[in-house]
Every structure is written in structure tokens, then in C-alpha cells.
Design a protein around this nucleic acid. Structure first.
Lengths: 217, 217
DNA sequence: TCCCCTAAGTTGTATAACAAGTACACACGA
DNA sequence: TCGTGTGTACTTGTTATACAACTTAGGGGA
């Protein structure tokens, strides 16, 4: 087989499909996912369904305890706080590091443009995807296997929190802040870049937590 | 069942046993672990063995690619660099945060004392364990579920790197540096604490990388 | 010597089955 | 009426077994 051709195992494909259903809102908070149910829907064996579910549990998109059925968690403001507690230092370290690298930033630039290109009444999911992609691209620029995989673990729950709160900061503001961070990185101004990123992230954190509280009522 | 009573599933127990074997050096770098082999040794089914192995793969203590046998990786200086790239910002954020908390630090204090108590010719594994426990305790003080679990992911590979390099910094130096960091935290001096921790970690990183290079020859 | 092909070993996935734990409803007694 | 207990249905945990697909190494033929 050609090396570039990558196949995905049944389990991976199933896990990806479930992930999409959670993040598209097809499975709302509180929805349960039994192993048998998933196995029947996708016509796979229960062990396969089990593994896929436990992968999502691992990434925080589902929760379960021993002998209980998995469910989609409703993230609280405590969860948001906890997520950003880890996210912020990681992303600041990323920005600080790549500000001096003069590395290729094509992916991040594209993500910034994509946000601007979303129509004002565009689908929320497209917007969220471009927002998250900007941050993921910056992380990937560092080129660290472990950093990228740890960050991906956070991304799942961050994505979920954005879906559940229906919104984050507003298109124009995010576009502006992303563009500013990127400009500072390209200018090699690490102090400015980390400062801008810190403001951007804390702003997002507070907006998310606020929206969640409103939604809870 | 009483809540405090915790049972461990067969899979968890098996995974823990395998982890111990890897970290005690019972399984040296390059050693392979086939599913059937593990299943027979522990008298469990192959699916159970498979799950336990994939848990270790997840935590970096084993590696495997599709359709290939899992093996104990030989960590290189590149791995060390990658690990500390993520570890340092996380631990600095931890120290910065808990320096102002006036939280209970009993666990960390105990870990510092335990290092001092290791006899000069004491077992390497005891020493390594106390060293890692100091850092883990500090992380746990923050009280963040996600931070602790992400850090635990790193700890596995860090532990492995210390086992493979046979050594880190020297007992007295580590004791002194740990004690100094802890003192700064208790004094509430965040700047001093993070500075000391940064020096401690970069020192450890370089010592590890150096030892690994020697071992490779 | 080089290449292809086969064969053995290993993993990926499925099926079936039983054990063990959980949850909910329902009957029973105070 | 209010617990209390119990039983049943449902779900997960684990095992056993089987077969397909893939990897690797070794042997035979050009």
C-alpha cells in the first residue's frame, strides 16, 4: 500500500461519527448512549461500540462511571474554569515559543480568513470550527507530538462547551483578536502576542461561563 | 457499597501490573508485548489484555502501530525535549497558582522528606518515586481534575525516561531544590517559586538528555 | 542475486454467553 | 402514608472462540 494512504479502523470511524453527533448537537446534554444501542445503530459488535464510547469518555465528550451508561455531560461554569485553567498556560507557552520561530503560519492565517468569511447569519458550527482551528493550528506549529495530543484532549471539551453555550464572543471581535495575535507573532513580539492571547482567552472564558449560566435557567 | 470502598476492574489491575513492570525495568526498552502473551501470563482473555495494553499505549509507556506488536519505547533526547516542552509551562503555572493559595502542602512536604530519607545507596526506584511524587502533589494541590489527569499522562513517560537514564540529578541537589521551591511557595513568593522551579526543571531536563546520550553509546 | 510467494504469527473485529452491578417499580409491613 | 425490601429488567464487565486482514520472515525460482 502507498504510504500516504491512510485507512481508519472501524473503531476510529465509529468514534469519529459519535464525536460529530455530540459536537453537532445531535446528542444534547444528558442524552445517554448505551453500548447495545450504538452497536445496533451502526451494525457493529458491542465490544467495538464499547471501545468507541470509551474513547469519547477519555476525551471528555462523554462521561460514565462503572456499570452505568455513558451520557453527554452538561458542562458547568466550573468545567469552563477548569478547562481554561489548563488551556491558558498551554496556549501562552505556545504563542511565546512560536513568536520567535518565523515558522510557516499558513494554516492559522487561513483560519483567520475563514472566520471573516462566515456570513453574519452563518451556521454556528462553521464559526466554532474555524475559531478552534485557529488555536489548533498555532499549537501544531510548535511541532510537538505531546503538546498537540494533550491540547486535542482539551479541544473536545472546549468545543462541547461552545456548542452548549450556543455562542462565544461574536464574530467580529474574534476575528480582530485572532488577527492581532497573529500579527504580533509574525512581528516576533512575544510579549505582545502572549498578552493579546491572554486577553482573548480570558474574554472567551468569561463569555462562555456567562452564557452557560443563562442557558441553565 | 460504601463510597470510599473502591474496587478495581481486572483491566485496571492488569494495566497497573504492566505499568509496574515497565517502570521497574522488568521490561527493558525494545521489549515487545503481544496480546496473547500477556493474556496467557495473567490468565485473562485476549480482549482484556488488549485493553490493558492500549491503556499503556495511551499513556506513552508502550508504543504500537496498527497490526504491529506493542513495545517498550527507548526514549531519546528528542522525547525528553518534547516532554519538558509541555511539562515546564504546566508546572510553572501550577507553582504560580498555588504560591498565593496558602493551601495544605502536607503531601509535598512529605515527599521532600522522603527524598532526604533515601539512603545514599538506596534503590533508584524509591528515589525516582519520591521525586515524581513531589511534583504530582504540587499539581494536585491546584485541585483541577483536568490538570491532574493531563499531568499524569506526562508523568508516565517522565518516569520511564528516568528509569532508562538510570539517574537524574543527584539526591542532595534534588532535595535542596525541592525544599527551596516549597519554601518559596509557602512564603507566597510566586516569582521566586516559579524561577526556582524553572531552574530545577531545566536542570533535570539537561541531565536526563545527557544521561540518555551516554546510555545510547 | 533478486524477487515473488507462501506460511506463520499477530492484530482487528465479530458473535455468543454468562457474571455482576444498577435502577426502578411494586408489594409489603409499620 | 411512608419507608423498606425485593425482584426483575436492563446495562456493563469479562470471557471464550473464531475468522479475516495484515505483517514479517524465509524459501524457492528466475
Amino acid at each position: 500500500m502507498v504510504k500516504g494512504l491512510k485507512t481508519v479502523s472501524v473503531i476510529d470511524a465509529l468514534a469519529a461519527s459519535l464525536r460529530d453527533r455530540v459536537l453537532d448537537g445531535g446528542l444534547v446534554a444528558g442524552a445517554t448512549l448505551t453500548e447495545t444501542e450504538v452497536a445496533e445503530q451502526y451494525e457493529v459488535s458491542r465490544p467495538t461500540a464499547k471501545t468507541a464510547i470509551s474513547m469519547l469518555v477519555q476525551s471528555g465528550l462523554l462521561r460514565r462511571e462503572a456499570h452505568k451508561t455513558a451520557y453527554v455531560p452538561r458542562l458547568s461554569d466550573v468545567d469552563i474554569h477548569d478547562l481554561f485553567l489548563v488551556r491558558i498556560p498551554l496556549e501562552l507557552a505556545v504563542v511565546e515559543r512560536i513568536a520567535g520561530m518565523h515558522a510557516a503560519l499558513g494554516g492559522a492565517e487561513q483560519a483567520v480568513r475563514d472566520i471573516a468569511a462566515v456570513p453574519a447569519d452563518g451556521a454556528h458550527s462553521v464559526f466554532v470550527e474555524a475559531d478552534l482551528r485557529f488555536h489548533q493550528e498555532l499549537v501544531d506549529v510548535v511541532g510537538s507530538r505531546r503538546l498537540s495530543s494533550l491540547y486535542a484532549l482539551l479541544t473536545g471539551e472546549i468545543h462541547l462547551s461552545m456548542v452548549q453555550s450556543r455562542f462565544a464572543l461574536g464574530r467580529d471581535r474574534i476575528f480582530g483578536e485572532h488577527a492581532a495575535v497573529l500579527a504580533a507573532i509574525k512581528a516576533g513580539d512575544a510579549a505582545q502576542a502572549t498578552s493579546l492571547m491572554r486577553d482573548h482567552l480570558t474574554g472567551a472564558q468569561h463569555a462562555l461561563a456567562e452564557q452557560l449560566l443563562i442557558g441553565d435557567s
